[in-house]
Design a protein around this nucleic acid. Sequence first.
DNA 1: ACAACCATAATTGTATACAAAGTATGTATA
DNA 2: TATACATACTTTGTATACAATTATGGTTGT
Lengths: 239, 239
Amino acid sequence: MNSIAGTGKNRGKTAARDESTLRAGTQDALRNAILDGKFKAGQKLVERELCEFTGASRSILREALVSLEAKGLIEHQSYRGYRVARLSARKIVEIFELRSSLETQAAELFTERASDEEIATLNEALTELERCLVNFDLARMRATKERYYDTLFTGCRNEEIRRALANVADRIYYLRSRLLLDPTRREASLEDMRRLTSALTSRDRLAARSASLAHLEAARETVLQIMEQDDSETAFRAA
Amino acid sequence: MNSIAGTGKNRGKTAARDESTLRAGTQDALRNAILDGKFKAGQKLVERELCEFTGASRSILREALVSLEAKGLIEHQSYRGYRVARLSARKIVEIFELRSSLETQAAELFTERASDEEIATLNEALTELERCLVNFDLARMRATKERYYDTLFTGCRNEEIRRALANVADRIYYLRSRLLLDPTRREASLEDMRRLTSALTSRDRLAARSASLAHLEAARETVLQIMEQDDSETAFRAA
DNA sequence: ACAACCATAATTGTATACAAAGTATGTATA
DNA sequence: TATACATACTTTGTATACAATTATGGTTGT
């Protein structure tokens, strides 16, 4: 149970990514716990408990918390501590608006700047996605999708856009698994990505833009539907 | 010289904005020091010296540094500490690409969501800007410009976009004063803003988009010219 | 029963000392 | 000149103490 991020003695060896500093490792451990739903949305994060959980001292833990707050993953109130950030429907709309803006831009830039190798990687990832769909390998599907987008955002040669997108991506991460549960949506999403990939491969800027946009709008609609469902079941909302 | 953010005893009284926590105050003091050029780009930031400068303890200082790093204002290397982030020409292009994407989006959303009061505020700010231009009141011009953009980004009703833009805005802050030094650019910029304001006032989405885009492209060109000048004078570049 | 009130516990905010680990620098030696 | 080593300095991490604020739970008066 203890020493998730490694203690002073064996630090950096327990964590998945061999982070160079304990702070980075602690931060990563907390981030993973949140993304995996181990700490639920709205849950209060008590410093003492997190120290036990991560094995880090309070100073380091607090630094990690500050960083996660800056990324919008947790929220802070003076003398009332941190809680896991909650996603309102409104927030989701905002995030999708930001994504619409930046991802389409990224797609456009990709058509002009990506290397042929990157385009090849994109197509390989797509093929793997199709295999995953047939085999119902959802875990691998998610990993592959990440590889796909990672290539896309690298190929657009803009670290700032990549960074801004990474920040919001973390916050809607847990929704992805929900999206993949719907078989209809799964097939539709793949069709969207086929169109996008094809446009990117032929370096057709306008087509890439519209494909990216269509994909995002469909995803947004599905997410909002899921939210509505959840709200009618367990009724907590933070408008 | 000491106690920029206030010490334990008189905290919150020295700082300009009465920040609720010492950390927020310290962070603000450091941010201002960087934006005002007190700490130059690339300069190494030694913890001990910053403690003396801000009057904060190391715990607080380090938390502030973590937060500033997350905002991209400073950079960190393991066991080598923090330095003020450097802006390469490449980075500036990236930032302007991001702004092009998000600010045009914000302008579009503004036309659909802003209140009439916000539109009025925009027009007031514009009028004040014209007065400033005549009176050569550059300090006030900058403040007014901030009010203008603040209203714009509030009116688009998207905190995520606002936040992403705020992050990059800090990093190119010091370039603004440079921009305002060129009288030709000053007049051209104001003309751009007149067009934008007019489009926003009539809630013409497409016109707002193109006006916003034109403004940004002009600004980018000027910034890059300034960068080139600087490079030929004091030659340090971090491609 | 219920509301206001107070004492106490729990939690967060701040400060500081110290140890461990890595980096940078300078010097001696081959 | 170049390499190895010693040294000082910086960063990183821990432990601890105490202050400030909030949360909790019980008591009292009505």
